[in-house]
Structures are given as C-alpha cells and as structure tokens.
C-alpha cells in the first residue's frame, strides 16, 4: 500500500486504486491518460490505454491494487519505461507518454508500445511479488523473460531474442523461447512471477 501526503498538489493514479484517504480529496478521471488530445489519440492507436485519475487535495491518500507489491522510483530527469498496467501512481510533476518498444510487447500480448514516465519526482510501480532490480552494464548484458519484465530505466537497448528451433515442433523446446536482451547502462525491474504470455509455454 502506498501512502501519499498532499498539500494542495496532485498525483496521477490508476483508476480505482484509492483505498482510503483522510482530509479533503478530489478525484477526477483523466481521459486518455491526462495527456491531452494528442496523448489520447496516441494511446488509443497504440492500445497502451491507461485509465488514470487525478487526485488533488490536502491530507493523506492510500493507494493499492490487488495486493501487488509497490516499488517507488525516484526520477531526476531520467525516463522510466513501464508497462501501463504496472503504473500505480505518479507525481504530477512527471510527464507520461507512449513509446514504441519493438517486438518485446508482441510476445507478451501487451502490444508493441509501452508507457514512459519522465521528469523529476516519484513514480510508484506495481509488480506481482516484490520486484528485483537488476543493473545492466556494458560488460553484463541481461536477458529477461517477457512475462516477468516490469519496467526499465537508463540508456538501454533492448532486442528480442527468439530461440525457436525445430525442436519446438516436437514439444521439446527449452521453455524460454522468447527473451528480451538488454544492453547498455541502466536498471531493469523484474517480478517473481510470469504473466500469461503467448510464448509462455513454448
């Protein structure tokens, strides 16, 4: 559960994720992720829809979603890439947007676009089980299962690896046929659980 203290300022949070508050709060649904007409159209086109609300007021507001674990990310001008379904709450000082991620999304059924959060402030992301933060450096690239990927930040290049061989047609695949490889410098968040992916059983 995430507690946010507010003094007249606002946060953007996943629709319906408020579980309690004290003080005075205003909840306003933001159509199209609160990114204006252009953001709305982009989100609709990219199928990276995110229903968020704006919470403004004085007091403390608590957010939670299906008992998922919450990780707080402090951003200082960097950009965080996160699946829209994993965004719980972001500070109003952060800008959200949509970006193309390449083939990774296609394998996990989340679409080929992802949500970006940038600016200075804090963002709360949720994961099924506590997220593990893994550092990627030039010497140590990281390979991640698409179903366990939550978010990443930093200057990372991601590439999609497919290890499908003739063995898969005999049902003797390695079980990890689709992977995303991160190279560069940055951080990757993975969750100790795998979403149901199209490729999950291959």
């Amino acid at each position: 559960m995430l507690a946010v203290e507010m003094t007249g300022d606002s946060v953007k949070a996943k629709n319906g994720s408020m579980v309690a508050y004290d003080g005075t709060m205003n909840f306003k649904k933001l159509t199209g992720g609160g990114e204006g007409i252009r953001g709305m159209v982009t989100r609709r086109l990219t199928n990276e829809q995110m229903t968020v609300m704006e919470v403004r007021g004085h007091g403390t507001c608590w957010f939670a979603d299906r008992a998922a674990e919450i990780s707080l990310v402090h951003l200082q001008g960097e950009k965080l890439y996160v699946e829209s379904s994993n965004v719980l709450c972001v500070e109003a000082t952060l800008r959200t947007g949509t970006t193309f991620t390449g083939l990774r999304g296609a394998s996990q059924g989340n679409g080929v676009f992802t949500t970006t959060v940038e600016g200075t402030g804090q963002a709360a992301i949720i994961s099924d089980g506590p997220a593990v933060l893994l550092r990627v450096t030039k010497q140590h690239p990281l390979t991640v299962d698409p179903g366990a990927y939550v978010a990443h930040q930093g200057n990372l290049k991601q590439s999609f690896q497919s290890g499908v061989t003739f063995r898969h047609f005999f049902g003797e695949g390695g079980g990890e046929a689709f992977q995303i490889r991160f190279e560069g410098e940055g951080l990757v968040y993975v969750q100790p659980s795998e979403r149901d992916t199209i490729a999950g059983d291959v």
Binding site: H140, D145, V188, P192
Partner: peptide, 16 residues
C-alpha cells in the same frame, strides 16, 4: 521447470 526463469546474466542455454 519450464518457464520459471525470469532473468539471467551471462550466457546460458536452455534445452529441453
């Protein structure tokens, strides 16, 4: 067990 790897560093092969 198949599909339980969530991430790895290095060079690892998975074979049925």
């Amino acid at each position: 067990q198949k599909g339980k790897m969530i991430a790895y560093y290095g060079r690892i092969d998975f074979n049925g």
